[in-house]
Design a protein around this nucleic acid. Structure first.
Lengths: 186, 186
DNA sequence: GTCTATACGAAGATAGAC
DNA sequence: GTCTATCTTCGTATAGAC
């Protein structure tokens, strides 16, 4: 997420933050405007499609950020890749213990907007693909790598939910220990 | 969820359904009233605490339902318990592919309401405990059983998110295959 | 106990001045 | 291009008749 940038970029960044904390329905323009310092009329100037467009762009931007991080994951063997993955996402899940969450997951709720689900599906798919590629490069058979990558992304998203409820990283750490041990003992 | 019952029970049931599809902020009394057939004034008659109380009761009721199902899971060995778990939750996740979702997970978003997170945390904790007990009874060491149960609940919640985005059970089936194989090969 | 009617505020969306 | 002011709609919440 760009820390500097024009009004438009700041609005997208503020939308990502609002999505993580309050979801689509709970995100208000008032909040985005306040956090980005933009004026009310700027919304429909930069996003003619209104809330749906802003939300879709925010989810896509957040998805691309995470994808970039996953694609650059180090690790010469499967356990090393998984450990690197877990280490990379732990701080993100930690934000969920303080009311954060996954912005991409947030846009899947609501259900009436099919386009938003497509944006989220594309993001999740790109994450799985990137992680699967890293696992395959570390020696996991192609078919297994894809399934394992999807499983790890599911654990990540589930940990967001559980840790936000528990206000603790304990569920994440339990899942991390378990999956690491299972792969190591394979 | 009771299919018959008084006005109050029907309202709670309608709230669970609304929570699954639209989340807390997206759930409106208008929708709950329509689906339950209740009158507008019935809300504050039965739920003096307003929306917060109705939502909390709906999440708790849904949590108790799921807990009852998990506590009765069959299986003489670890793989059998996990298979029974996955078979039991598959139809629930299938509802997510058509816009559903987990009502308990839904109440964790928003963040400002600490009580709602506590309700969700209690529900998730009871699910993990019930599943962990079944795994322990099937021969998994106590400490491992608790971690594995939490991991399975995380996978369940993550699968809800991924399958709702993808409009497909494919992510769930991949994760189910993976975790089953990892436990079987242990 | 159940229902109708309504108050009050906040949301998204728009128009038009500068 | 940017900002101010405003419109309309829908939300929660309440009052009070039956």
């Amino acid at each position: 997420m760009t820390v500097v940038g024009g009004t438009r970029d700041r609005m997208v960044g503020a939308a990502v933050s609002a999505l993580q904390r309050h979801g689509v329905a709970g995100m208000s323009f008032t909040e985005v405007l306040r956090d980005s310092g933009a004026a009310r009329g700027a919304i429909y100037h930069h996003f003619p499609g209104g809330k749906a467009q802003l939300v879709a762009e925010a989810a896509a931007a957040n998805g691309a950020d995470v994808h970039a991080n996953l694609a650059g994951l180090p690790g010469a063997d499967p356990v090393a890749v998984i450990t690197a993955f877990l280490t990379a996402v732990r701080p993100v899940v930690d934000a969920s213990t303080r009311g954060g969450g996954c912005a991409v997951a947030a846009v899947t709720v609501g259900g009436e907007d099919e386009d938003l689900c497509a944006v989220a599906a594309a993001a999740f798919g790109s994450w799985s693909a990137a992680l699967g590629q890293r696992l395959a490069a570390a020696g996991v058979p192609e078919a297994e790598a894809a399934d394992l990558a999807t499983t790890l992304i599911a654990i990540l998203e589930g940990a967001h939910v559980l840790c936000r409820a528990a206000r603790s990283l304990d569920p994440f750490d339990r899942a991390a220990r378990t999956i690491t041990a299972l792969i190591a003992d394979r």
